[in-house]
Structure formats: structure tokens, C-alpha cells
Design a protein around this nucleic acid. Sequence first.
DNA 1: GGTGGCATGTGGTCAGACCACTAGATAGTC
DNA 2: GACTATCTAGTGGTCTGACCACATGCCACC
Lengths: 260, 260
Amino acid sequence: MRLRFTRQRAGMTENTNRNPETQLTMQVVNHVRSLIEGGTLRPGDKIPAEREFAKELKISRASLRAGIGHLAAMGVLNVRHGVGTFVADGPPALGTASLALLGALHGFKPWQMFEARLILESHLAAMAAERGKEEHFTALAEEVTEMYATFHEPQEYLIHDMRFHRTIAEASGNPILAVLMETIMTALYDERRKTVERSRDLKQAAEVHREIYRAIRSRNAKEARTVMEKHLKLAESAQVSEMKRGAAKKKAVRKESTEE
Amino acid sequence: MRLRFTRQRAGMTENTNRNPETQLTMQVVNHVRSLIEGGTLRPGDKIPAEREFAKELKISRASLRAGIGHLAAMGVLNVRHGVGTFVADGPPALGTASLALLGALHGFKPWQMFEARLILESHLAAMAAERGKEEHFTALAEEVTEMYATFHEPQEYLIHDMRFHRTIAEASGNPILAVLMETIMTALYDERRKTVERSRDLKQAAEVHREIYRAIRSRNAKEARTVMEKHLKLAESAQVSEMKRGAAKKKAVRKESTEE
DNA sequence: GGTGGCATGTGGTCAGACCACTAGATAGTC
DNA sequence: GACTATCTAGTGGTCTGACCACATGCCACC
């Protein structure tokens, strides 16, 4: 049974739903939203059980679940099977796979990803140098240490790499920029995870992270920014070459794969 | 019947789902994702009817709908009652209300919104000056004209204001940054819509937009950036004063409306 | 030639049952 | 007494099949 994915174009492009309140699922979303905005629900809180909540809202459990699904997809709610549904806690984040999916959909190019990241992170580094607190510096130092300790285990190394950049974002004092950066980083590292095994120079990368740390720690915003830019440009070419190396190896079915 | 929103904290903060494939709804998300990444589904395409698609995937319609709900919330799918479900078309955008909701959740401050926007848009303006195409310039000019024509109708004016900035983002040649900017702008203008009625100096604002346009048009990246920064700082103080003006008025009226 | 209404296909909602997972309580074992 | 296995209650996850609401094209009717 072959299903067809009709190529027919959907006429109207800018179709705003007329009655936002007619949609039961949207009604749920708005209800929860107002509870959050009104302060009734705060991060980490548990919302009522589905059967109970549905009765309260006078809708079926299915409709309630549709609304919860929306909120969960947006990263506002955190559903845990067998336990309950909670308002998102911890570091804010947009819908998990959203950017990666949008990327596939609109054909984002890797260089565009890196460009976006460069812009965001260079500012974040500078801001972290200016506004960072002692606790952030401590966390950064720890991650650098871990990087040095794990540069022989790429997957492990990557985790600390991510945490390092995440901490900088947090230290910047602007959670919105942190969220945006996180969104891009997630998409980027998703790809990186597959290629990092082929990486060399992980030790050198740790070196650069140490430089960044020192610049931030000494509150030298300009320097932090410069080094971060250098790091990211390096990272870009590293990832590109990793990807090429992977592609080359894949094609080299015969053992002729001499690494240029 | 009073429902309680338990304040109990949810222990684990970093809970990654162990089996991403165990979740039927995630299975649907990943399936569609792979269809998109594989090129089988492209923007504007119609996916099979729910009953049919569910049978194909050997899952119930309910589960399928859960997955579709997720994708719709992320802005990847576009569901139209009585018509069908389509792969998102037009300008890419992250989940609609996500940032606004996250803002309420984590208490984003207005100045943080503006700071984030300033960083993004100043770069976007410079990039638009460097990479913009003739068609973009034309569109920008049109929007400026419209702004001059409608500065007595704030709501109308706002639309063109948004379109102007959106066009710059598009002209920058980096759709990722455009998406991020759009996310922030949506949250910001959502608020602005309520206060713009009290705005003065809309004509002056149009003036500044014209300056920005001229800088971009003449491919003067540095100038475009500078003027954009000036504009956004102006816009920030304008909105703040609008909000203050509104707060004063609201106290006098003392009107309590029902929650929707 | 126009127009109202119906047929069809699609998503939206409902109800109730049962499955799967978690965590705490309980009873049994060493 | 401390540990471990099992049970149990509570919660989300899935299924089924019916019916409702909406959008569109077709066709008889005027």
C-alpha cells in the first residue's frame, strides 16, 4: 500500500485562524498559559492528573492531552510517564528538535548555523566577561579541566564542551540570548556527535577554551570576544573537515583511503 | 472543586528520555522528520489523511494525532480543519507563542528582550546592506512608504513596522538569524500591540526607518548598523514610556474584566 | 447562469477501557 | 535490624469506534 504525499500547494499562505477560542486544544494552552502568567503555576510545579484536570475544564481527556502535547512540544511542560506532568524547570529551552527540523525543511546551510552562532556567542562571551559572577567562573574552570581530562573520549568531551558554552550563556545575564544560543547549539551538536569520533586536535580545542575562560575571568570583554570568535572559526573548519573525512571514508570501499 | 497545583519539586533536572523510540508519539515525529529530511515531504505538501496514515504506521489515530500535535506546535505542520494537514510553508518560524510563554515562565525582563533584539538586528541590518538584493530594497521602500501613510493608525502602522524588520532579516541571507529575530519580535510586538495606541512620535519612527533603508540601500553596512541601534534604543524608551502611560491610566479606570 | 443544498472527505471531540511505568508501602528473608 | 522482593495505587500512554464540525465540489433546481 503506497501512500502518496500530494504535491498540491495549499493556497492561502497567511491563514490566521479566525476563532482562536474555538479550538479546544488552544483553549487548554491558553488556560495553562494564563495560570503561568498569573503566577499560579511556577517552574517545577505539578499540574493535576489528566483525568482530574479534564473534568475541571469540562473537556475530554483526549482534548486535554492534545493541549498538553502542544505545551510539551514547546518545552513549557515536562511529562513523565507514571509520575505526572510538570511545569518546565531548569534552563529554559525552546522546543527541542525544532531548529533541526526547520533546518531540514528550509535547507539551512552549515555555514549559516555557524554564522548565527558566531554572532550570538561572541556577544555572550563579552557579556559574560562583564557581568559574570564568581560561581560562573568556577563552573567554567571545572568544565575546562574536564575537557583536558577527557579529550581522548570524544563523546564525553563533547558534553563538557556544551556545558562550557552553556555556562557562558548563563553568565551573560540574558536568558533570552541563552535560549537562542541553546537552540542553535543543540542543532549543531546533534550533528557533531556523529562526527566527533573522527576528530583530532581535541586537546588543542581544550586549549582555546582555557584561553576563553581566562579572558572572561579577567573581565576582559574585548579579549573574550576575540578569542571566542577565533575558537568558533576553528571549530567550523574542524567540523567541516571531520564531515569530509567521514564522507571520504564512506566512499572508499577499497582500502585506498590515504588521508590526503 | 478546587484543584491544587502541588508545589512539590520534581527531582531530576536533566532527564533525557531513555528510549526515544518507545514513545509512539515520538516515533511519529521522527518518521515525519525523516520524510522531510529525505526529501519525500517538502514545504506545502499535504500529508495523508489521519485515518489512512495511522493505518500505514500501524498505530491508532489517537497516537498519530499526538505526534502531529507535536509537529504542529513546533510549527512544522499546519493543520487545517476539514481540509488536511500540510507541511509548513512560507517563512520559517519557531513555535508561535513559545518565547512569550517561556518569558512568563522565567520572568524575562523587557530590557533583556530589547538587548537580544539589538544584538541580532544590528547585525542583520549590516548583513542586509552587504548582501541584500534589489527586490529586498524595493520591499523595504514600500514598507517605509506605508509607514508614512499610516502613522495615524497605530495598529496598521505596526504591521508595516514588523514587515520592514522582517524584510531586513530576509535580506540578511541568513534564515536562521531571521528565525531567531522573528521569535523575539513576535513576543515583543505582542506586547506592543496593546500599548501602541498611546504612542506618539510614530512619524518620527517612520523617519528613522527611512534612514535605515537609505543606509542599507547604499550598502553602507556600518551606517546601517549604527542607525538600527539608534532606532532600537529609541523604540525601547518609547515602549517603556507607553507602558508607563498605560499603567497610570489603568489605575484610574479600575476595570476588572473576566478571564477568557 | 446562478444558487442552494447535499455528499464526501478531512480534522476535532468524545467516552471508556486497558496497558505501562513509577514510587511508596508491605511483607518476607537473611 | 537491614535488606530485598512483591504488591498496590496513581499517573501518563494507547486503543477503539463512534459522532461532530468544517470545507469543498457537485448537481439538481430555479
